[in-house]
Simulated scan of single mutants.
Amino acid sequence: MSTSRIELRFGGTGGQGLLLSAKLLADALAVEGRHVAQSQTYEPTSRGGFCNADLVVAHGEVDYPLPIEFDHLVLLDKIAIKPSWPKLKAGALVISDVRLCPELPEGGRFKRYPLPLSRTAIELGSERVTNIVALGVLIELSGICKHKSVEQVVRASSPRGFLDLNMDALAAGYALAKTPAVAAAS
Rank of each mutant, 00 (worst) to 15 (best):
P86G: 06
K82L: 15
A169T: 00
F162R: 07
P67D: 10
K178E: 14
P83N: 11
V98W: 14
P159C: 09
A30C: 12
I6H: 03
S186N: 13
V153N: 01
P180T: 10
K78E: 14
I81W: 09
S149N: 07
E7D: 07
E69C: 12
V36Q: 04
A172D: 04
V129W: 00
G12Y: 01
A22V: 04
I79P: 01
M167N: 04
I122Y: 05
S142C: 10
D164Q: 13
A181E: 15
K148P: 02
G60F: 14
M1L: 15
Q16G: 01
S157F: 12
C51P: 02
G14S: 10
I122E: 10
G125L: 10
Y64W: 14
E140N: 10
A183V: 15
I6P: 03
D27P: 07
I68D: 14
A30D: 07
R47E: 11
Q40D: 11
D71V: 10
S21Y: 07
C101G: 05
Q38P: 02
F162A: 12
D164A: 14
E106A: 15
D63K: 12
G125K: 05
L124S: 00
I144M: 11
L18S: 01
V57E: 00
M1K: 07
D63A: 15
L176K: 01
G173N: 04
F70R: 02
K87M: 15
A183T: 13
A26G: 05
I79E: 09
H59M: 14
R160M: 13
L73R: 01
A184F: 12
V98P: 06
A175F: 09
E123Q: 13
V133Y: 02
C51R: 03
V56K: 02
H147R: 09
E127V: 15
K89A: 11
I95W: 00
G48I: 09
C101P: 01
D54G: 01
G125S: 07
V62A: 09
V57N: 00
R160H: 11
V133S: 00
P102E: 12
P180N: 10
C51W: 07
V62Y: 05
L176I: 06
W85A: 00
V150N: 02
P159A: 11
G12S: 03
G173Y: 02
F10E: 03
T179V: 13
G60P: 01
Y174D: 09
L135G: 02
L165P: 01
F70L: 14
R47K: 10
L20W: 06
S142I: 10
D77G: 02
K178F: 12
D27G: 06
L76I: 08
S142R: 04
T130W: 08
S21V: 04
D27W: 13
N52K: 05
L135H: 00
L76K: 01
A80V: 02
F10N: 00
E106Y: 11
P83R: 08
L75M: 10
Y64T: 08
H72P: 04
F50C: 08
A172E: 07
T41P: 06
I139L: 13
P86A: 09
L25P: 03
G14L: 11
E7C: 08
E140L: 13
K148A: 15
P44G: 08
P114C: 11
P180G: 06
Y42H: 07
A26K: 03
H72K: 04
F70T: 00
V62W: 03
V36D: 05
